[in-house]
Design a protein around this nucleic acid. Sequence first.
DNA 1: CAACTAAGTTAGCTGTAGCTAAGTTAGGTT
DNA 2: AACCTAACTTAGCTACAGCTAACTTAGTTG
Lengths: 154, 154
Amino acid sequence: MDSPRKRTSTAQPRAPADHAERFRRVRDAHQSETAEDYVEIIAELIGEKGEARLVDLAECFGVTKATVNNTIQRLQRDGFVTSEPYRAIFLTDKGRKLAAASRERHLVVRDLLISLGIDPETAEADAEGIEHHVSKTTLEAFRRHLAKQRRPRD
Amino acid sequence: MDSPRKRTSTAQPRAPADHAERFRRVRDAHQSETAEDYVEIIAELIGEKGEARLVDLAECFGVTKATVNNTIQRLQRDGFVTSEPYRAIFLTDKGRKLAAASRERHLVVRDLLISLGIDPETAEADAEGIEHHVSKTTLEAFRRHLAKQRRPRD
DNA sequence: CAACTAAGTTAGCTGTAGCTAAGTTAGGTT
DNA sequence: AACCTAACTTAGCTACAGCTAACTTAGTTG
Ligand SMILES: [Mn+2]
Ligand SMILES: [Mn+2]
Ligand SMILES: [Mn+2]
Ligand SMILES: [Mn+2]
């Protein structure tokens, strides 16, 4: 007598306090967040050093190797990476796709912040959190704004 | 032989892959997030209906009453709210302060998104997640941008 | 004033994400 | 070939944040 998951989905005339759906989306974003950051960094490491080792990830995220190990197992379970005991970590196709999209979005968010006059250091830091909450629509708007900036008078 | 918390803090010449600190900040933001959203909504409910009831919060966040109950206990433990069994929930001074700051920031973030041409619906939704990752510096830049927009030629 | 119901509470479960401590393995050095 | 050590794994813990199911209370209503 309590399950809050269903929502009539009939696109009602504007429910009073329709906060719930928004908060649900934020919670969803938090779920995807770890995967997005991991595959992005893994792709980066593979690009830079040829392979992604657990110890590099630990250093990169500022967590212990044990934590990374757990996370990698979850990512493997969810089909983003493959890895055999004591070996490097690889991306699946699904992982590579997510990595590419995440990287793109990350850069757009960072550049947008910079375009608003924020210093690159802060922009990079804030982008790391903001990126996961930027919808397709908003990302598009960010891209448009950047394009406009680049050629002010067209 | 593994604790990743310390960082020499000597402000080194730019460590290679200084990602760690950024991710730490994102994790911190996630910790404060629940408190920020709750006090904001509680303040809103008190403003609108005179009091904030557990059942309203549950509806608002789209979670069960049991979940809200847990959260309120944590918020009480952390000094943001007071509440006695079967009674309404009130904000402490600390809670009211956090609520005011959160609301302010929320509005700035939302308005900034709108000012970039994003529809209010999407802006509101994305702001709900983004707000928690916007630093003081970035918030200031957002405010500046909004001021500039409002009076285009000064 | 009794009874019903909505609101709130409690107990007990799940999964994520972090940690420490202790053990194992792979691969380079001698 | 043996050995060291860094890399990795495992086990076992914590807190947060969600859930269901069952229970209790407060307040309204007949
Ligand atoms: Mn990123
Ligand atoms: Mn990120
Ligand atoms: Mn929020
Ligand atoms: Mn908010």
